[in-house]
Every structure is written in structure tokens, then in C-alpha cells.
Amino acid sequence: MKPTRSSVPWFTRVALILLGVLFLLPFFWMVSTSLKPLNETMKLPPQWLPSSPQWNNYPDAMRAMGPFWLYARNSLLLAFLNVIGTVFSSALVAYGFSRLDWRGRDACFFVLLATMMIPFPVVMVPIYGLFKAVGWIGTFQPLWVPAFLAGAFNVFLLRQFFLSIPRDLSEAARIDGCSEFRIFWQIILPLAKPALLTVALFQFMATWNDFLGPLIFLARENQYTLALGLQALQGTISGTPWHHLMAASTLVLLPVLVLFFLTQRTFIRGIATTGLK
């Protein structure tokens, strides 16, 4: 349904507003709790707003998490490496699967699609053993090196996009004597910006929020990421400090929220251009 601007029926607006409020409610609760004193977090009936906002909860929560800025640095570093690695390697592989003809390509691609179905728990234990064998347990490498080896889902998205670029473009370049890598780097990649941005954003969010990977592979507290640091706030013997936890969650969410808000138009166009067909 793509009616023109004037003809959006009133019930569409109402539905959107109602659903929007419903979806925002938990956030509202999160932020309102992050500003309450602890004794107001467990009131019956629940209290919608703090009697007086406790801005101190934010610095307090950061202190309670441990070295907040160090965690933030670790998270950013890992997110950066993962985004660079995934975008570059997935594009390279997707190029090989879409714009070159070679024997066995489709069979290989089928294998790639099939790997998407291997659940992480299946490979978790042997991968742990592998990283142990190369002495990477307790270092950052297990959390970013795999990103440089292309992810099946991202290769799939990018391949769909690359297929939609007319063949003639690269043929012309080939006749001019361009190397295959230059065609990839100077012709195809610039055209694929929205799709690359989409992959980058997906990867950024996945890394930013990853919890299991850092939990298993990191050993030292000073390497923890924000997502793992949040866990340190969760229940000790004294119970969960709800207000701190919500304040910290708001802080962790904020950068991703801003990032999405700024890029959402390109992001959605990026997915659209990949076509998924």
C-alpha cells in the first residue's frame, strides 16, 4: 500500500501512535528507574516518575560497573575492528561469489548458505579449544580475528547487491586492462556504499551487544566490554541495584541509538537495495 501523503487514514495514525507508546513504555520505565532512588524502584503500586530525579545515579552506576571508560574503549575498539574486518572481507568474498565465473562457485555458495544453520553452541566448544591451542584465550583476538574471515549472512546480503550491478561495467574495465582487485576496489565498492553501510551497522550492533563471546574468551577484568560490564551490576548477594543497572543500560544504549537515528534512511535503503531475492 503506497497511498499519497494526503490519504493516510486516521486509524493508521492512531495505530502507529498507540503501538509507539506501547513500544516506548519499557524505555520510559528504564529511564525513569535510572533516575529513582533505590527505595522508589520497588514501590507498590509502581511509581511512574521519581519524586526527585537522582542524576547522581549515572556517575554512581559508572563507578559500580568498574572502569567504565576502559570498558567503553574496549567495546569501541572491538566494534571498530569487527566492522572493518567484516565489511572488507565479506565484500571481497561476495565479489568472488557474484562477479566472477568459476567452476564450483554455486556449490561453494550453497555450502556458505548452509553454514548459517550451524548454531553457535555446536561449534563453541571446539572453537574454544582452537583458540586455546594458539594461546589466544584471555586476549582480544578471538573477538575480532574471525570478523576478517567473512560472515555468511553478510556475504549473502552483499552478493545479492553485487549481482544487481550491470555486468558491462566490469567488462569494460577488464578490456581496459584493470586488475580484478582494482575493479572490485574502484568500481564495485563505491557503488555498494549503502549496502556496505548496512552490513557495517548490523555488525556494529552485534559486536556492541555481544555478551557470550567476551564472557567465554576474555579472562582479565581490564579487557571487559560494556555489555559484559553490565553483567557485573546484576544480582550480587545484596540484590540487583535496579537504578544503577538501568542507568548503565541507558548509557550503553545511547551511542547505538544515535547512530541508528542518524543513519536509518540510508540503512533501510541499503537493505532494500540488496533485494533479498
Binding site: Y128, F131, K132, G135, I137, G138, A219, Q231, A232
Partner: peptide, 15 residues
Amino acid sequence: SRIDQKMMLATAGGV
């Protein structure tokens, strides 16, 4: 945090 798990994994990982 979760020291019981972490210690086992770190020991298994040789660190």
C-alpha cells in the same frame, strides 16, 4: 564476576 566459570575457563585456556 562469575568467578567459578571464569577460573575454570582461564585454567583450561592456560592463563
